[in-house]
């Protein structure tokens, strides 16, 4: 690999932009394909499929050459808005799953470091904090405060950033009112439907730990939907 290719690859990853490295193992020739270059690439269908599944692998091109496509998708981050009991229960499970967690809550009594040892904690309003965090298509946003003043701005930012997963705590009635507010804010039905609410898989969860499990199970299922779809089609 040329050092400039490696440097460019690392720069894309540091900026949390997806990038693919195409290698011909027969002669070692390589090229980098950045996210915005995929559509114009002769291997576009393969590249899109690899990126969607997040899986690297060998493919055969039109001339029958075997090429290795290495996928470098940014690691998924989880941003929880609401430093609540459920969020405390989320911490160890998210760590086990290798999910990088940031917790945001403007209420300093909730966002106390003693309640979240070792967790990145931002005691600011979501509109300020989320700008610093920088939401993207590889971020999951969980709105967990039950307070529209805090949750709504976070959800709006997440929908605009096309976050990989958006979930909001609250009953169906609470969500119906939330949907109405989002409509008035100008969001269409398809966009609003991207919010998982009530948040989490329906496993009959009761305790904070069970709710945390239901939320992260739904998040994993969303991230792995390519695999689920592939199995359903097979």
């Amino acid at each position: 690999m040329r050092l400039d290719t490696l440097t460019a690859l690392n720069a894309e990853r540091a900026a949390r932009r997806p990038v693919l490295l195409v290698t011909d193992p027969a002669d070692g020739r390589q090229r980098l394909v950045r996210d915005h270059e995929i559509d114009a690439d002769p291997l576009a269908p393969f590249l899109r499929e690899c990126l969607a599944s997040g899986r690297s692998g060998l493919i055969a091109d039109a001339e029958g050459r075997s090429l290795f496509i290495a996928v470098h998708a940014p690691p998924v981050r989880v941003v929880a808005v609401g430093a609540v009991h459920i969020t405390q229960a989320l911490v160890p499970i998210a760590a086990q799953l290798g999910l990088d967690l940031t917790v945001i809550d403007p209420r300093t009594a909730f966002a106390a470091p003693e309640r979240f040892p070792g967790v990145r904690l931002i005691a600011e309003w979501p509109d300020m904090a989320l700008e610093a965090v920088g939401l993207d298509a590889y971020t999951a946003l969980l709105a967990l405060t039950h307070d529209p003043k805090i949750d709504d701005p976070a959800l709006i930012t997440a929908l605009r950033a096309r976050c990989a997963y958006v979930g909001a705590l609250g009953s169906r009635k609470t969500h119906a009112r939330r949907v109405e507010r989002l409509r008035q804010a100008g969001f269409d039905e398809d966009t609003i439907a991207r919010i998982h609410a009530p948040i989490g898989l329906d496993i009959g969860a009761v305790s904070p730990a069970e709710i945390a499990l239901a939320i992260l199970a739904q998040l994993v299922a969303t991230l792995r939907q390519g695999r689920i779809a592939a199995r359903a089609g097979a």
Partner: peptide, 8 residues
């Protein structure tokens, strides 16, 4: 199968 390359 493992591909080994030099970083130039």
């Amino acid at each position: 199968r493992i591909f080994v390359e030099r970083v130039d």
